[in-house]
Computed example of a mutant assay.
Amino acid sequence: MRLFTTGVQRRLPPGTAATLGERVRRFFADSPAIGDNLEASPRVLVGAIPFDRDEDDCLFLPGHAANRAWSHPAQTSSSAGSPRITAEPSREAYQDTVARALASMRASGAEASRVEKVVLSRSLRLEADAPFDPFALFRDLKADPSAARFLVPLGAGKGGAMRRLVGASPELLISKRGRAILSHPLAGSARRSPDLSQDEAAAQALLTSDKDLREHALVVEAIMDALAPYCRELRAPPVPALVSTRTMWHLGTRIEGLVHRPDEVSAAELAALLHPTPAVCGAPRDRAAEMIRELEAYDRGFYAGAMGWTNAAGDGAWHVSLRCAEICGAEARLYAGAGIVEGSDPAAEADETSGKFQAVLRALGMDETSL
């Protein structure tokens, strides 16, 4: 579904993931429909959920909603000259962090709180002499038709400039339409190659990789377990399939189901229930999140959170906020992560993050293959 909105009528009172379902129900109960024009009087909340479940989300009722794009006089290029790039952390420091995580996971042995997987990210900070154009970046990300593009306002940032989250996510967290729900998690990745034979070899190696299959199975199991109490039917194929973007191969599994009481649960509530999955956090979730706070030297903000919409009927769709940049004036911050499990190689995980950076870097007219 294509959804384009303009303006803000009301903001959903911000809160944590645990309270999102109840806040959405209360919001729509207190906001009766006005007239019959759904574009001018939309009954839909749009916005983003941060990575940290205990941080405030950012959702709002738009002034107008439509399935066609708004008109915006974007710059010729989304890039603002030749930005200065600072890796936070550097590739070498990231590899060291992965090694520390693996050592910590091994040291925990068979403890009940043992972390089986943790997703560690790194960031690139881009500073330019002129503001970045988020609308042009959104336009240029259409080169990857397999991903869901998004541009979400996050409120005023440094210097009063609007913060916006812009990206093209390949991963569906949850969608709901009536009784039917769908989740399509991705976990286990390999960088693509312009050489066709090498690209095919990378795809086939991913399909048979014990490390990546174990990493993927943790994600599917967690999502199935979380959704099962809400569903009268829930199914997933026994093995994952290959999913491709312009820069990466992924293992993906389509999880489909029918909920018991579709009128009592919204897409936003289900998104908050699942988020963050082991695909972007780890397993078990709370212990992995604690390790991320210990090892990553920055706040992820809305990266690896979720962005999407939910309407008054409870339908909606939420994608994981990946392959994205947070833009505020002349500064942009990009993020990429990799799932760390027993058998992970620090250099290979760093290379995976470099591949994931390419989606946004190429849209910005950059191709830093050494990152």
Rank of each mutant, 00 (worst) to 15 (best):
M1F: 10
G7N: 12
L12G: 04
L12W: 03
E22G: 07
R23M: 00
R25G: 02
F27K: 02
F27Y: 06
F28Q: 04
F28Y: 06
F28N: 00
D30P: 03
S31K: 00
S31L: 12
S31Y: 08
A33N: 02
G35Y: 12
G35D: 11
N37A: 10
L38Y: 11
E39L: 08
S41Y: 12
S41G: 11
R43A: 11
R43S: 08
V44P: 00
V46A: 09
A48P: 09
I49C: 03
I49Q: 02
P50C: 11
R53S: 08
E55K: 15
C58W: 05
A65E: 11
H72M: 12
T76V: 09
S78Q: 06
S79V: 15
G81W: 12
P83L: 03
R84M: 02
R84S: 14
S90H: 14
R91T: 15
D96W: 13
T97P: 04
T97K: 14
V98Y: 03
A99D: 08
R106C: 04
G109N: 14
A110D: 15
S121Y: 02
R122I: 07
R125W: 08
L126N: 04
P134I: 03
F138H: 09
K142N: 13
A143Q: 14
P145W: 09
V152S: 04
L154A: 02
G155R: 09
V166I: 10
P170Q: 06
I174H: 00
S175I: 02
R177C: 01
A180K: 15
H184Y: 11
A187R: 01
S189C: 13
S193E: 04
S193I: 12
P194S: 07
Q198F: 04
L207R: 15
T208R: 15
S209H: 11
S209V: 12
K211M: 00
E215D: 13
E215A: 14
V219N: 01
I223C: 11
L234Q: 05
A236W: 08
V239W: 07
L242Y: 12
L242W: 06
L242Q: 02
T245Y: 03
T247F: 11
W249K: 01
H260L: 11
R261G: 00
E269W: 01
E269L: 00
L270S: 04
A271M: 05
A272K: 02
L273N: 03
L273D: 01
L274R: 07
T277K: 02
C281R: 04
G282F: 03
R287S: 02
E290Y: 01
M291N: 00
E294G: 03
E294S: 07
D299H: 15
A304H: 11
M307E: 04
G308A: 13
W309M: 07
T310W: 05
G314Q: 06
A317R: 14
A317L: 14
W318A: 01
W318Q: 06
V320M: 13
L322H: 10
C328P: 07
G329C: 13
G329T: 12
R333M: 13
Y335L: 14
G343C: 05
G343Q: 10
G343T: 12
A347C: 09
A348F: 08
A348N: 08
D351A: 15
E352I: 15
G355D: 05
G355F: 04
F357V: 09
A359E: 02
R362G: 00
M366R: 11
M366N: 00
E368F: 10
E368S: 05
L371C: 06
